[in-house]
Amino acid sequence: MGRNAVRLLHGVRAVRVQVTNLLVKEAGEHGATEFHQDFPWMPMDRSAMLTVWLALADVPAGMGALRFYAGSHRHGLLGRSFTRPDDDQLTQHPWLKELELSPPLDLEAGDATVHHALTVHGAPANRHDRPPPVLHRHLLRRRRPLHRPALRPDRRARPPGQPAVRAREVPVPATVTGPVAELGATLMHEHVFGLSPEILWNWPDIPEGWDLETRAREAAAKLDALKAAGIDTVVDLTVVGLGRYVPAVQRVAELTSVTIVAATGLYTYDALPPYFGNRGPGSLFGGPDRLAEFFVRDLTEGIGRTGVKAAMLKCASDRQGMTDGCRRVFRAVAEAHLTTGAPHHHPLAQRLQGRA
C-alpha cells in the first residue's frame, strides 16, 4: 500500500505505513462513529498524514460507510473527541455543519476512501444484519518540514459568539548541536548513556571500563544505523538520577547524523538525592526548594557549562506511589513547564497505570 501511495501522490518519494487496523462494526450492536479528526490520536510531529479506509467486502451506504466534511482539514487542529460524553466535533464546533457533508457512499469490496488526518469525518450506525470488515491504514509522508497544526486558524467567517483562535508558530525544540530546521521521524524516549559517576570516580578500573571517545564512537555507530532505518531524531531522556553527562552526548552528536534532543528533570521513585533532600522547606538545612529553578535554567540558559539547552522535562513514579520526593519533583516539573512551556514526559510503572 505504501508503494501504491507513492505512485499516486505526485512529488512524494517515500511513504511510511504508520498504523493498520481491522475494523468490524457489528450489526445492531455499535452505534454511529461520532465525527472526529484522526490526527489528535496519532503520536506524530506533523500533519502530513492520510487515512485509507479500504472495504474488504461490499459496504452499502446503510452499513456505516464514512462521511466527510469537505474542506474541514483547512481549519487546523480542533482538539480531541470522545474523552467525555457529548464531546464529538459537531458538539464542540457547531459551525462545522455549515460545511458540505459528503453523501452516503456505496462501496464495493476493494473500494477505498482517502482523507487527510485533519478532515472531520464520521459514520452512521450499521443498519444491516451483517458486519462490514474494513482495513484502516494511516500513511505518513516520510520527510516534510516539521508542522504541528495549531488550533483552528481564523480563515473563515465565524458564527456569532465563536471565538477567534489564530494560528501560532510552534518552534522546533533546541538540540544538542543547536538549531535545526526540522526534527523528522523522532524516537521520543531514548538514552544515549546511563552513567554511574560515583562508581567511575572511586573505581575507575571497573571491568567494563569507560573511555569517552570509544563509547561515543560506539553510540554514534548505533545511531547511524537508526538513521539508515529512517529515524532522524532521538530525545535523550537521561536526566539527573540516571547519570546525565552532556559532554559525552555532545561528542556523540558530533559523530552522528542523528539529531539528539536533551532533557532536564530528576529521576527517582522515592527519595531525592541528598543535596536536594537536605535542602528545601522542612529539610535539614531548610531554605527554598530550588528544583524548578535548576530545571528552568537547563531549559533557558543551558546545562552546566555546555551551552546545550534541554527541550523536555521528565519525572517518574512507580509502585511506591507519590512519595514526598516524587511530589517535589512533580511540582518542580509543573512549575518549570508553566514558566517555559517546555513539554514534559512521565514514564509510569505498569502497576500504577490503572489508578494514576
Rank of each mutant, 00 (worst) to 15 (best):
P247F: 03
L313C: 05
A185N: 13
P160R: 09
M42C: 10
A61E: 12
Y275K: 15
M1G: 09
S72P: 07
V235E: 05
G304I: 14
E254M: 10
P145Q: 14
G178P: 03
L187R: 08
K97N: 01
A181I: 02
L107D: 03
A65G: 14
L272T: 04
R142H: 14
L313T: 04
M63D: 03
V261W: 01
A228F: 07
S196I: 12
G2Q: 09
A65W: 05
H73W: 04
E34S: 10
V329K: 11
L22A: 12
Y245L: 05
Q162P: 00
M322D: 12
Q89N: 15
K309R: 15
V249P: 08
P197K: 07
H121I: 00
P132V: 02
L56A: 06
T214D: 15
A310Q: 11
G184S: 11
T186W: 04
V19D: 09
C326P: 02
R327I: 04
L50T: 07
A342M: 04
A109T: 10
A336W: 00
A253P: 04
H345T: 13
D298T: 10
A221Y: 05
P85V: 14
L118P: 03
L272F: 06
A221Q: 11
L338Y: 02
K314V: 09
P343F: 01
G184L: 05
C326T: 15
A14K: 15
L105Q: 14
V240C: 01
N4H: 08
R215N: 12
R166S: 12
W203Q: 11
V17C: 14
T113G: 00
P94R: 06
W210I: 05
A164Q: 14
A334S: 08
V17P: 13
E335Q: 13
A292C: 05
V308H: 02
G354F: 07
R319V: 09
V258W: 02
Q353V: 09
P43G: 13
V120L: 01
M44K: 09
G31H: 13
L118D: 03
P43A: 11
A311R: 01
L183H: 04
G178A: 09
L140K: 01
R137Y: 07
L226D: 02
H73V: 03
T175K: 13
T33Q: 06
V240Y: 03
R279W: 08
T91V: 11
L348H: 11
F39V: 04
G2V: 02
S317G: 11
E190P: 00
F276T: 02
V134C: 00
F285R: 10
